[in-house]
Design a protein around this nucleic acid. Structure first.
Lengths: 218, 218
DNA sequence: AATTTTTTTTAGATTTGTCTAAATTTTATT
DNA sequence: AATAAAATTTAGACAAATCTAAAAAAAATT
């Protein structure tokens, strides 16, 4: 019922990699966790005996129902702390992830439930990712890619596709964050780049790659 | 500069045991940490190479200046979290300690400084213990034992001498906590017990032992 | 279908923190 | 001062989590 920090990190990483239906490979998980494939094999044997993964040697793995439930619990803790850091402690949007990586492993059930209550039962973290409730359910944010907006439509950023430092750095420089209202002015067919405007500031152009990593709600 | 959870627990325990001028013994520390004397010896060798303790085999030890600074940092984190849990998340007074034991090991400097700011720079935790500031300084609460009050004097509980579950349980049953206003009515010379009254409730008698573990401000 | 390449697992070592049992040192007692 | 008792350290073992290097299995290529 209670897992080590290391086990929790493996469970969380498998959850992120497995998505809807994919099986996860040893190498992929090793890359994700910046560890060695041999270490992954070792840990998977342990997680298998604990019935948290369905693992067949040489043929990849996915989380068991129990493993998935555990993963959602860890993600719940992570995202609630991110919300707390951002909303209450006024951390910058791109600083919360690293600190939450540590806080998420404090596994008091009561702590997390009371924290959630204190925060007012938020449904999304500062990156726009949904926060699972105490039973593991979460909203699937109805989202559109910015690049799919039509010219002169306006939307609010509700999510970014991932939290790589490179992306966060660029967003920070562009002054784009969750909640930012963006108006799409033109689309350039040549390279897919789009011209946007934020508030009354001067319009500017962002790459197709960036535009398709920003999810918005109209 | 950054220590493991285990190292931090040793440092904190040594700090509590060494008080003003005492040298700490291997057995005392083993008892405090619920571990074996041999384990303590092992860890002390490590802490010595890291220059956190002054340790002479067979002759006890105390924290070095660097070790003391580290201890105060850990205690600062612990007490700020206790304050947060009690004040913001509405934990019961006697529940905060255990959760804070885990939170205290999340060592982001920025997290703690921002938490302190958010909490309004509290000077005492819910047990009445002073919270070190970011440089390690803390107030030494000017305190009197309840048992030293004279009849009909009144005081406010500002600290309890320790946080043993047994004491906290008794205080909880007696409905006594930090901030409770107590009027001392009589002292019984035979066994040192004292009759007290809280607000307008019926007076009752507490043991000398309990009375001398409650620190009050007049 | 055979061979090469890639992926994954195994075998054995390492680090951290713990333990038990035995040896050593210090302290207390006669 | 000698001896007994208590405290402490050493020696050697173990579990968790990691690693490197080698072996084995699967996938890709010829």
């Amino acid at each position: 019922m209670n897992y080590s920090v290391s086990e929790e990190n493996y469970i969380k990483a498998i959850f992120h990699l497995q998505g809807e239906g994919e099986t996860v490979t040893t190498n992929a998980l090793a890359a994700e966790l910046k560890t060695r494939p041999a270490s992954v094999t070792d840990m998977l044997k342990k997680l298998k005996t604990k019935k948290l993964v369905n693992y067949q040697p040489y043929h990849g793995f996915r989380l068991s129902p129990e493993g998935k439930k555990t993963a959602l619990g860890i993600i719940r803790r992570h995202r609630l702390w991110e919300y707390f850091l951002s909303e209450k402690l006024k951390f910058e949007w791109n600083e919360v992830h690293e600190v939450a990586e540590h806080l998420e492993h404090v596994s008091s059930r009561k702590l997390i439930d009371k924290l959630e209550e204190y925060l007012g039962y938020p449904k999304f973290d500062p990156h726009g990712d949904p926060i699972p409730d105490s039973s593991g359910k979460m909203e699937s944010s109805p989202q559109t890619m910015l690049s799919q907006l039509e010219p002169t439509q306006t939307g609010v950023v509700i999510q970014v596709s991932n939290q790589s430092p490179a992306l966060l750095e660029l967003l920070s420089a562009r002054k784009i964050g969750i909640g930012t209202k963006i108006e799409l002015l033109r689309k350039f067919a040549f390279d897919g780049s789009v011209e946007i405007r934020i508030g009354r500031a001067a319009p500017f152009i962002i790459s197709e790659q960036l535009a398709s990593n920003l999810f918005i709600r109209k």
